[in-house]
Amino acid sequence: MILAIFVTLGVHLATHAFLGVAGYEDSLTYDSVIGRYRALSTMLTLGVLLVAASYHGLYGLRNIVLETRWGAQRARLVSTATGLLGIVMVVWGMRTIVLTAGGS
């Protein structure tokens, strides 16, 4: 999980700084973004990063909240809420990847 985040985040940051783009501003133009999203390598990179980073972040949030008195008394609620938040984030991110790759 950690290794997946390292690799995919490294590639993601590189594609916004120097990899195939003139610079940060250039990487954010509509044509540049669409061009990248339609490459299979980008779809895979962003898909893996989306799932791994969301899981890692929300699992950490859950642990922090469970350490508080409030969270410890509501462990099931905390787990359910972070799980649902994760589903929303992953579904919305995947929607973006699929729709953009499909030419919407």
Binding site: Y30, V33, I34, Y37, L50, A53, S54, G57, L58, G60, L61, I64, L85, M89, W92, G93, R95, T96, L99, T100, S104
Partner: peptide, 18 residues
């Protein structure tokens, strides 16, 4: 926590490309 907050908004901001 800061990165998680950023990630949350980043996913929805990036979604406007669709």
């Amino acid at each position: 926590l800061a990165i998680l907050v950023y990630l949350f908004f980043h996913i929805f901001v990036t979604g406007t490309v669709t």
